[in-house]
């Protein structure tokens, strides 16, 4: 069963197409990864699904409710952890949760029980009476996850849930995410910049220039790259690249100072490759299984990690997402 249904969704800002006629479905209970370079339309799509933005065209439904026509039903069905913190720093952790519980009209006794349970789950019970402005980045994020779960949503949206956090905290947050899916069957829709994290998803959609360019399980996406990834450095990459193309009728690509070649049975392919390239000086070679990052580069022409360095791009997407 599909918990999120998106059909021909389009969003224009002036003349600019931020989301270009996308359609896909998210199944109930899965962890769904939504990846893409900055400005690809991730935050815009999430904002539409969360009822913060009106689509220009198309339909989006969550748990059967239309995001433009049945907003309150949608809002009651979803929990959201935004990319930027959205806690009230002057209120304590417990008060932030209580505000949320009251806004979602959870009966008092149930609300207080759940607050206790969730604070305990994210290991913040001891800190519940401290104002959240004194919390660390990881504590804030954990509290926001607890808050997003308080009204028992069917879908939890996580926009870059681990960005800017240290590896230990990231692991802990992922433990929570996986536990939520396994124990409560909650559907998780997340965006991330970390490819290792994307591997944890059941399915992944890659969006670029407002269009979905791939949607499958991480395994299948990697299988589509056929075999192994050989990375080669030579004295003249351009000429070597041309030669490989004609000799093996395959399509390698150059990125930075290396040639990337996908081939089945890479170990057996390398000797053939060396024979063909005997007039070139080969300075380095490696062979490995492709990662999701390779999938991403192949499809978008960019490495996803480069984006994290690009603060300006991030700012731009944030502004657009508003």
């Amino acid at each position: 069963m599909s918990i999120i249904e998106i059909k021909n969704l389009t969003k224009k800002f002036g003349d600019k197409l931020a989301v270009d006629d996308i359609s896909f479905e998210v199944k109930e209970g899965e962890i769904f990864g939504f990846l893409g370079p900055n400005g690809a339309g991730k935050t815009t799509t999430i904002s539409i699904l969360c009822t913060l933005l009106q689509p220009t065209n198309g339909i989006a439904k969550i748990a059967g409710y239309d995001v433009t026509k049945e907003r309150d039903d949608v809002r009651n069905s979803i929990g959201i952890v935004f990319q930027d913190p959205s806690l009230d720093g002057d209120l304590t952790g417990e008060e932030n949760l209580r505000f949320h519980g009251m806004a979602y009209k959870i009966p008092k006794q149930i609300r207080e029980d759940r607050i206790k349970y969730l604070l305990d789950m994210v290991d913040l019970f001891d800190k519940k009476d401290e104002r959240t402005k004194n919390y660390s980045g990881g504590m804030k994020r954990r509290l926001e996850i607890a808050r997003g779960l308080l009204h028992h949503p069917k879908v939890l949206f996580l926009d870059e849930p681990t960005i800017g956090l240290d590896p230990q905290t990231r692991n802990r947050i992922w433990e929570h995410i996986i536990e939520l899916q396994e124990k409560n069957g909650i559907t998780i829709f997340l965006t991330t910049h970390y490819m290792e994290e994307a591997e944890n998803c059941n399915r992944i959609a890659i969006i670029d220039h407002g269009k979905i360019i791939a949607l499958d399980t991480p395994e299948n996406l990697k299988k589509n790259l056929k075999g192994d990834l050989i990375t080669l450095k030579t004295s003249d990459n351009q000429k070597a690249n041309e030669l490989i193309k004609t000799c093996f009728s395959i399509n390698p690509y150059i990125k930075d100072d290396s040639i990337f070649i996908y081939a089945e049975n890479g170990e057996n392919f390398i000797p053939k490759l060396f024979r063909a390239l005997r007039t070139f000086e080969i300075t380095s070679v490696s062979v490995r299984k492709p990662t999701l990052n390779d999938v991403f580069i192949k499809l978008t022409g960019r490495a996803i990690r480069e984006e994290t360095m690009d603060g300006v791009g991030r700012m731009r997407e944030r502004t657009r997402g508003r």
């Binding site: 913060l52 809002r75 979803i78 935004f82 930027d84 959205s86 806690l87 808050r147």
Partner: peptide, 12 residues
């Protein structure tokens, strides 16, 4: 500080 978003996505 982002809290407005929390209010805007709540069913109010």
């Amino acid at each position: 500080f982002g809290f407005l978003k929390e209010m805007l996505v709540a069913p109010i």
